[in-house]
Nucleic acid binder design. Structure first.
Length: 499
DNA sequence: TCTGGGGTCCTAGGACCC
DNA sequence: TCTGGGGTCCTAGGACCC
């Protein structure tokens, strides 16, 4: 808790949806929903126009479509968002060495450690200039909160949304916080909120009045004490730049429940491959293998096994996951499977135990020598389609555009790009030889320099020559996006945020 | 067309050890 | 020979966050 509001929290406004609107002129000012388009998809981000219809994050897509039938529904393009995120994080890095990314669109910055602000006036000036720089560099708006602690800075940025800045003057926090709902405090979700409500506490000042002992009795040691402190506006957590990953996991929800035991096993094996690909790409090995199963009725269970030493060997992880599956009853059907590795070692190391097990398992050396990238790039989920809505394409005659929809052997493309006027729509056969996957066009001319969208070779900034990227990154499939490995593998040390 | 995917942290019980 | 008390590791589950 410091005397000057020098902790900054940045939160990009409706990030995924705003990025799509910036890339697609015809969508500006219109409701846009980004999320899974399969039968079991949920909303990742809704534009502010879509929110007016009641659409919000984590809502099932079906419900969103009922509320906003005329919105544009797009599949997320993580590689594209990541490239924008890197531009933003670079701007933050110019303010301070202490930048703590929380996700692609959110971060804390310690302005005091950066020596760029020491009082209210300078902090506000830095925040406003940052917002202007972000707009100039990316074409997108972000909201800024400034306060003397992380918690208050985050609450401030929430109040600033959209496209604003709120500075909480130290000394005013208790008065500001007191009347607000307990739900604004970090760590108070639906369950804790309901728990507190049943105990008669709905506002932050209710918590402060209840006292620490009462909160600990209700919520447990850790949660109770931290909530009591937060309710008084007290929070001295430092901004931490680098945090070590603790686990790596992959999971798939299937369009229809799986019943066939053989199919379930093969899916678990494929998940193990993807998981190991990601594990290796991040330069880790791990000791504990976790299998996750969500049944037809949404009940979820995990089974784990801890090895004697860390491994990054595919055979070892696959065998362990298989053993864990043996202990799970799947009658009734399975809607989700996941494989994870935790207990990560700092670096990949030679592991005699793992190699031994590998040999016993009859692992063929060939599979082990497959590069991690190749494993990750394998076609993934059942939801993969050739022409996913929202993806960039290029037509030999009409130029750059994006997929508006496809089906019945046809694909509809709108031809426009960030700097153009809203474009018009044309329809082609899905196998039209003049149509190919395209690369994302930089949102701001000249601002995207040195920001390869897929994390591959550096590409010319404003240049959007047809075959700029190798097929792997430019493929319409979102496999590379979903894997996330290219981004992780691309910049050793330069990307403080993990996926 | 009811509920994604990737994470983090905490709790609680049992095993095991001193 | 009627019960201590910690500490650590492992497993499973749950809440929460974006």
């Amino acid at each position: 808790m410091r005397a000057a509001p020098t902790i900054l929290h940045l939160d990009m406004d409706a990030f995924f949806a705003a990025a799509e609107q910036a890339a697609k002129p015809s969508l500006r000012g219109k409701p846009v929903v980004v999320g899974g388009l399969g039968p079991r998809g949920v909303v990742a981000t809704a534009s502010y126009e879509a929110r007016r219809f009641g659409v919000h994050s984590a809502m099932p897509m079906g419900q969103a479509r009922r509320l906003a039938p005329n919105a544009a529904y797009l599949v997320p393009r993580f590689a594209f968002y990541r490239s924008i995120s890197e531009q933003v994080m670079r701007l933050l890095g110019g303010l301070s060495p202490l930048v703590e990314p929380l996700s692609l669109d959110e971060a804390f910055v310690d302005l005091e450690a950066g020596g760029v602000a020491g009082d209210t006036a300078s902090a506000r000036a830095v925040g406003e200039r940052l917002r202007a720089d972000i707009l100039a560099t990316t074409g997108l708006t972000g909201s800024v909160g400034l306060a003397g602690s992380k918690m208050l800075a985050k609450i401030a940025s929430e109040e600033a949304k959209p496209d604003g800045l709120v500075l909480m003057e130290p000394g005013t926090e208790r008065a500001l916080l007191g009347p607000k709902s307990v739900r604004i405090l970090p760590g108070v979700g639906p369950a804790t909120g309901e728990h507190l409500r049943r105990a008669g506490m709905t506002t932050v000042s209710d918590l402060a009045e209840a006292g620490e002992d009462e909160l600990v009795r209700l919520l447990g040691r850790a949660h109770g004490t931290s909530l009591y402190r937060m309710a008084q506006g007290y929070d001295d957590r430092p901004v931490v730049a680098e945090r070590d990953a603790k686990s790596v996991s992959v999971e798939d929800t299937f369009a229809v429940d799986l019943h066939d035991r053989v199919r379930i096993r093969s899916e678990v094996e494929r998940l193990a491959e993807r998981c190991v690909g990601r594990l290796r790409a991040s330069g880790h090995s791990g000791r504990t293998i976790v299998l996750k199963v969500r049944r037809f009725d949404f009940s979820t269970l995990t089974r784990s096994e801890t090895l004697r030493g860390p491994t990054d060997a595919l055979g070892v992880v696959r065998e362990a996951a298989g053993r864990l599956l043996d202990s799970v009853d799947t009658t009734g059907g399975v809607r989700l499977l996941g494989v994870g590795v935790s207990g990560l070692a700092d670096y990949t190391q030679e592991d005699l135990f793992a190699q031994e097990a590998e040999v016993r398992a009859g692992e063929d050396v060939e599979a082990e020598s497959v590069p991690a990238e190749a494993v990750v790039a394998e076609p993934a989920g059942p939801a993969e389609r050739s022409w996913a809505p929202g993806h960039d394409v290029r037509h030999a005659v009409y130029g750059a555009g994006w997929v508006q929809g496809s089906g019945l052997g046809r694909v509809t493309v709108r031809f426009e790009e960030p700097g153009s006027a809203p474009g018009r729509v044309r329809t082609f056969a899905v196998d039209d030889p003049e149509l190919e996957a395209g690369e994302a066009v930089p949102l701001v001319r000249g601002a995207g320099a040195g920001l390869p969208v897929g994390g591959g070779a550096p590409s010319a900034a404003a240049g959007r020559g047809g075959a700029g990227l190798p097929g792997g990154s430019a493929a319409p499939s979102s496999a590379a996006d979903r894997g996330g490995a290219p981004g992780l593998a691309a910049g050793p040390g330069s990307h403080p945020h993990h996926l």
